[in-house]
Design a protein around this nucleic acid. Structure first.
Lengths: 210, 210
DNA sequence: CTCATTTTTGACCGGTTGGACAAAGCCTAG
DNA sequence: CTAGGCTTTGTCCAACCGGTCAAAAATGAG
């Protein structure tokens, strides 16, 4: 055996590791790294603790594998912002994509949020090696659009921050959003309402045109 | 004794409880409830664990007292939004006040963020009894401004969410903001830059005026 | 079927955690 | 000074934590 692949080994190992990572996302995202326990993850994955530790040597190893796999997906919408496209269209679809990610992958958002709140002790290297260069690149793209008169001049970094903040808010503070909106307005439609509002906010602002 | 007050008792008790709460804010805000330990708080407060437990019966009691005391301060900027004032001025100063709070009280922001991420298990009652009614009230104020043509029509709830999100982002994701901005642009000026950007964003948006 | 390899588990370990408790120190009113 | 209450601490405990280990069970190639 061990001919198809030599690192992740057998098919069953790949499957079990996937189940564990899915369970770990549940637990880590809602309790943070330190607040999560291996027992919780093992129970959520439907296996015993020693069995889980057969697939991942340590708690850190689970976390690291998990967050590595999620970061690329998480940065995809920003990567997709295309300099050769129309500025307004690109900005609008970036916002759209980000709020769709908050809707479809809220646990990933909360996982990152938890890590950031604690000072990013485990993902700082990835922030510097992957996130920062990507943001620098896209900030240049935004700047070039602004110079070309396609967007109003503004700080591109804070623009990106504000898109992150407003969209991820609906994942990270979901409980607060639903509590404030109440049972009627806090249903599934809230993401669509948010998308509409944010589109207007980022493009038109709130000052009335006289 | 015990004549001046009968609940918080002696002066020394009030002082020590204050020291403990200050230390607890440090520890809870950076590790979350479960990640924080009584030992850490006791050490940060400069006293032994049994001594700390003499002033607060349980870890939960510390947390509850802390978050109760902070919520009012945290909601102050929104409370101050005055219906009889000018809509644009009021909106602008709300944003300003919120970002000043993120700058001056980042630990309080992170404490709330940590709690929200975990589904607000400990402060849900306060969200319903204090936060929701306040937001409902201010949403009506915003709506009335919009009807009067002082602001563009928009969803007032999502407007409030987006102000929370963008401002608190600079406290909650401080490490990410500073990493992305780098040593030069990530200095003390970042809050002023953010305030300027957000003011433009909320009032004017980014679509260029032809 | 056979047997080596992979997978699963119960028992266990040292360290940490939230909290209890009693004894000791300290302060101050009389 | 001294007695009574307030404050502080060392010690202890049961539960929990991350992780180990050896042995048992399941698997699958020949």
């Amino acid at each position: 055996m061990a001919m198809t692949e030599n690192r992740p080994q057998t098919r069953i190992q790949r499957e079990k590791r996937e189940i564990i990572l899915e369970a770990a996302l549940d637990v880590f995202s809602s309790h943070g790294f330190r607040g999560a326990t291996i027992d919780q993850i093992a129970e959520a994955a439907g296996m015993s603790k020693p069995n889980l530790l057969y697939y991942f040597k340590t708690k850190e190893a689970i976390f690291e594998t998990l967050i590595h796999g999620l970061l690329d997906m998480w940065l995809d919408p920003l990567k997709a912002m295309d300099e050769s496209g129309d500025a307004i269209v690109e900005l609008r679809s970036y916002i759209r994509r980000k709020i769709e990610m908050a809707r479809d992958f809220p646990r990933a958002s909360r996982l990152f949020a938890n890590e950031m709140l604690q000072g990013a002790p485990r993902i700082m290297p990835m922030l510097e090696s992957e996130l920062k260069p990507l943001v620098d690149e896209k900030a240049k793209v935004l700047k070039s659009w602004m110079r070309a008169g396609k967007l109003k001049p503004a700080d591109p970094y804070h623009l990106i921050f504000s898109i992150w903040a407003t969209t991820q808010h609906y994942a990270d503070f979901d409980i607060q959003v639903r509590t404030v909106l109440g049972p009627d307005r806090g249903g599934d439609g809230r993401f669509e309402d948010a998308a509409r509002f944010l589109e207007q906010l980022f493009l038109e602002g709130l000052r009335p045109t006289p």
